[in-house]
Computed example of a mutant assay.
Amino acid sequence: MRQHEYLVALKAENGLLTLHTLHWSDEIRDPKKEIDTLPGKAKASDKELTMAEQLIGAMSMTWDPSEFHDTFQEKVAALVEAKKAGETVEKAEPAAEPTGVVDLMEALRASVERAGSPKATGGKATASRKGSGSAKTTGKPPAKKRIRSAPKEDLSGLSKADLYKKAADANLPGRSQMTRDDLVKALTRA
């Protein structure tokens, strides 16, 4: 294959002949000899095992392969179609910064709670509704405060595509190179 010699296993599977490439013996290495910093076997407490089993049980489901699909391929196809239609294609937002979870047990407990109760994720929306309702009950805020806070609240809920459209309407220079946060800042200043 491709002008190289390979070690292979030829197998008959489900009425088909399949060819599996294998590694040569000198390509197989013992990780314990190669990496001296491998962790040893860790003992988990009964509480940790119980919580892990609860999490697995809460997140388990029946397997239906038709429910899963390649979202990356769909996004690329959508970008190609948008480009064909003459639409502007904006750059993707950078990946979110990783957060360092200090307490693994607390993260596992929170995950079990989220998986167990579907309403657990609605906390942020409730808090923002309380904040918007408090202005109505306490009276109108001063005019300056209302003018400054209204655009920020409106912009924070918009997608990057909507922000880009607003930036295009405002004729902001360099908008195609901006991240979502940059667009919010630029539109707030404008």
Score class of each variant (00 low, 15 high):
66 S>D: 08
27 E>K: 14
54 Q>D: 12
12 A>M: 12
100 G>N: 12
156 S>W: 08
44 A>P: 01
25 S>Q: 15
98 P>I: 04
65 P>K: 06
21 T>R: 13
1 M>K: 01
177 Q>F: 00
47 K>Q: 10
160 K>L: 03
6 Y>L: 10
160 K>P: 00
2 R>H: 05
123 G>I: 11
113 E>P: 04
92 A>L: 06
14 N>T: 14
25 S>K: 15
186 A>T: 15
169 D>K: 09
114 R>Q: 11
173 P>M: 05
72 F>I: 04
40 G>V: 09
37 T>F: 02
130 K>N: 14
33 K>T: 03
23 H>D: 14
51 M>E: 12
95 A>L: 04
162 D>N: 12
137 T>E: 11
124 K>P: 01
33 K>Q: 12
90 E>Y: 02
32 K>L: 08
128 S>D: 04
33 K>M: 09
18 T>Y: 03
48 E>G: 05
87 E>F: 00
112 V>K: 03
141 P>A: 10
35 I>C: 06
89 V>S: 06
80 V>W: 13
49 L>K: 13
174 G>H: 01
112 V>I: 05
137 T>M: 08
94 P>V: 00
187 L>N: 03
77 A>R: 15
190 A>R: 10
176 S>L: 12
65 P>I: 05
88 T>A: 08
173 P>S: 07
121 T>C: 14
6 Y>H: 15
46 D>P: 05
171 N>Y: 03
187 L>F: 06
52 A>H: 05
184 V>G: 07
73 Q>D: 07
108 L>V: 01
157 G>Y: 07
137 T>V: 08
57 G>Y: 13
13 E>Q: 15
136 K>C: 01
180 R>G: 02
185 K>I: 13
86 G>H: 07
88 T>S: 04
150 A>M: 04
30 D>A: 09
5 E>G: 07
60 S>G: 03
180 R>W: 03
29 R>P: 09
122 G>I: 14
79 L>N: 01
55 L>D: 11
117 S>G: 11
56 I>R: 15
176 S>F: 08
22 L>G: 04
85 A>F: 03
34 E>P: 02
95 A>W: 09
180 R>V: 02
142 P>K: 03
124 K>R: 13
188 T>H: 07
178 M>C: 07
107 A>F: 01
43 K>N: 09
128 S>W: 06
53 E>G: 00
80 V>Q: 12
100 G>P: 12
2 R>E: 06
152 K>P: 06
39 P>L: 05
178 M>S: 09
55 L>V: 14
9 A>Y: 05
49 L>D: 04
94 P>Y: 00
190 A>D: 07
104 L>T: 07
164 Y>N: 09
78 A>K: 10
103 D>N: 13
99 T>W: 13
121 T>H: 14
163 L>P: 03
29 R>I: 10
33 K>F: 09
127 A>E: 11
46 D>N: 08
52 A>I: 08
35 I>R: 13
162 D>C: 06
120 A>V: 11
